[in-house]
Design a protein around this nucleic acid. Structure first.
Lengths: 191, 191
DNA sequence: TAAAGCATGTAAGAGGTTACATGATTGG
DNA sequence: CCAATCATGTAACCTCTTACATGCTTTA
């Protein structure tokens, strides 16, 4: 997670730890602590993925080595290690330009599927709870769950845009299956 | 975090670990692992916050002790230990009904302020980056950041609804300062 | 009767945080 | 020149996950 973020940010330009941290939080990822960032950079240096040549004292600017570049590529491409959480997805999306165009659609659709699943099970549990206990949920819990569903819907609509654009950019055969899977998902959403 | 979730869910009804986990994920909080859940319940039992009397073998239903109830109250009320992340806020909101009405507005406004801040700094860094590097951001990064801002705006609007409703429910004097703080925040949002 | 799901638990370790320590540089 | 910010780092610890182990119960 953190390793991916470091390598990804360093792919574009050489950075030192402090600046890396700023960018990480500016992108809206997360505010990693220095106690986690600096040891991570040391580790990546030992692994030969990043290095620094300027000894000019104060700042320690790291840049990607060819091995680091290859490692980044592998981390982005290998979806067996991908977690289904938002941060993991956002991180990949931020580095989409470094990915193989064919892999991008897969990442987007996987994220979409995950959101659809979560929404469906959230809906189901709301109904089940309404049926089980006669009294309705308290105002706050209801607001929380409804907002969760609405946010997920907005995210899915946004993903659909991205998917559509991506499809237009990489015209390929064999789209029938994906389209079918998508309309099934849409039925699930529609209550 | 996990402790708060366990105590909060047990406040309404006695539950065993397996069921607790299901509810936790149904609420959209997170899918806690058993390797984390069971030890946590043990710990809470040793602390005297929860207990079980049914030895009927298979399931171990825990319920809240009076001490556990007091502890829950304290965890909900004490905002010095509150983290500003989404999960922490959602968890508190789900247990709003157990909180003092006077504390609720504070939680909502604190969350609002946090979102406004993050959005403002995200906006600022986008502009700064646009000015610094002549070339515009790649399509994906742009989509990510814009969507982040839009999501935050939607969350803020939702919070405003909650805040308004809450104000109507707890009519009090001394609202002028809060209202002023809120309109300042609104100016920040409006680009 | 086998497979799938229910239910509880342990051990090891990944992946972070907090708190602390240090010092250089910049701006009012 | 003093405070704030920049900048790097260490040590202790905390929270949670993964992987494993066990056995019961329901369903096809």
């Amino acid at each position: 997670m953190l390793d991916l973020a470091i390598l990804g940010l360093l792919r574009e330009e050489a950075l030192h730890g402090y600046e890396l941290r700023r960018q990480l939080s500016d992108f809206g990822f997360w505010s990693v602590s220095f106690g986690s960032l600096y040891p991570a950079m040391r580790r990546l240096e030992k692994l030969g993925y990043i290095e620094t040549d300027d000894q000019t004292g104060r700042r320690k600017e790291y840049h990607l080595t060819p091995e680091g570049k290859a490692q980044l590529q592998e981390m982005l491409e290998d979806d067996s290690t991908v977690k289904d959480d938002e941060r993991s997805f956002n991180l990949r999306l931020a580095f989409f330009r470094y990915m193989e165009p064919e892999s991008r659609l897969g990442v987007l659709e996987r994220r979409r599927g995950h959101l659809v699943d979560r929404m469906a099970s959230s809906r189901a549990s709301m109904k089940q709870r309404a049926a089980r206990t006669k009294q309705k949920m308290d105002r706050y819990t209801l607001a929380l769950m409804e907002h969760g569903i609405e946010s997920a819907q907005a995210d899915i609509a946004w993903l659909d845009d991205l998917i559509e654009t991506e499809r237009a950019l990489t015209p390929k055969k064999e789209r029938a299956r994906s389209r079918k899977a998508r309309s099934r998902a849409e039925r699930l959403i529609a209550e």
